[in-house]
Simulated assay, not measured.
Amino acid sequence: MTSEKDENVVWHQHVIDKTYRAKLKHQRPAVLWFTGLSGAGKSTIAGALENKLAEMGYHTYLLDGDNVRHGLCSDLGFSEQDRRENIRRIGELSKLMADAGLIVLSAFISPHREERALVRNMLPQGEFLEVFVNTSLDVCEQRDPKGLYKKARAGEIPNFTGIDSEYQAPLEPELDLPAGQASVDELVELCLVDLKQRGIIK
């Protein structure tokens, strides 16, 4: 059954489209989805990559999990349902930014494969790049930059990913970054090589 909203809401195709916007920017739009445990280095690597891309003249936008929860997702908690809705909203936002011709760097734990697949399916083939920031739980817990693992172990943070809530590692990511074994600069270089091979940057 089609809802009244579905019948009356129609996508308006404008003259200036994604292809035109990307051509102006001399790049191919893409969404790089950085996933991994808390403390894996997602935001650090994404930020360093964005800095490098900006130096090279590319147009980007970095979406960070904590930052988004200050505004767009400030009404959401950390239940399973709210976490899914958080990822859905970020996926829609990433899609709009890619439509603007940008290279979008999204850094979110996004622990479930189903949620990441949902975002992948929002975008055209080859535009979603799953980047697994592959850092072991031991290393993440040793780093514990925000003290969250300590609080989780003490029972102060329920449903904490990696401790009492599951993290499902990607099975076939476009990029698997050995973040527990390489420097940030080395990992950024791996990303740049991959982006060049895919024709997203020159």
Rank of each mutant, 00 (worst) to 15 (best):
Thr2Trp: 11
Glu4Lys: 10
Glu4Met: 12
Val9Ser: 07
His14Leu: 15
Val15Met: 13
Val15Asn: 12
Ile16Met: 13
Asp17Thr: 12
Thr19Trp: 11
Tyr20Gly: 06
Arg21Asn: 08
Lys23Ile: 09
Lys23Ser: 14
Leu24Ala: 14
Arg28Ser: 15
Pro29Lys: 06
Ala30Arg: 00
Val31His: 02
Leu32Met: 12
Trp33Ile: 01
Phe34Met: 00
Ile45Gln: 00
Ala48Arg: 03
Glu50Met: 13
Glu50Gly: 09
Asn51Val: 08
Leu53Val: 08
Glu55Arg: 14
Glu55Trp: 11
Met56Ala: 12
Met56Arg: 08
Tyr58Ser: 02
Tyr61Asn: 09
Tyr61His: 11
Val68His: 06
Gly71Trp: 00
Ser74Ile: 12
Leu76Gln: 04
Gly77Ser: 07
Gly77Ala: 04
Ser79Gly: 09
Asn86Ile: 09
Asn86Glu: 02
Asn86Trp: 03
Gly91Ile: 01
Glu92Cys: 12
Leu93Val: 15
Ser94Ile: 07
Lys95Trp: 06
Ala100Pro: 09
Ile103Asp: 00
Val104Met: 08
Leu105Pro: 02
Ser106Arg: 08
Ile109Val: 14
Ser110Trp: 01
Glu114Leu: 14
Ala117Thr: 13
Ala117Gln: 15
Gly126Arg: 11
Gly126Ala: 13
Gly126Phe: 11
Glu130Tyr: 07
Phe132Leu: 07
Phe132Cys: 05
Val133Pro: 09
Thr135Met: 01
Ser136Glu: 05
Leu137Asp: 05
Val139Asn: 00
Cys140Trp: 02
Glu141Val: 13
Gln142Pro: 11
Arg143Pro: 04
Arg143Met: 05
Pro145Arg: 03
Gly147Ala: 01
Ala154Ser: 05
Ala154Thr: 02
Gly155Met: 02
Ile157Asp: 03
Asn159Asp: 15
Asn159Thr: 13
Ile163Val: 14
Ser165Ile: 05
Glu166Trp: 10
Tyr167Leu: 07
Leu171His: 09
Pro173Gly: 08
Leu175Glu: 02
Leu177Thr: 04
Pro178His: 02
Pro178Val: 05
Gly180Ser: 10
Leu192Tyr: 01
Ile200Glu: 01
Ile201Pro: 03
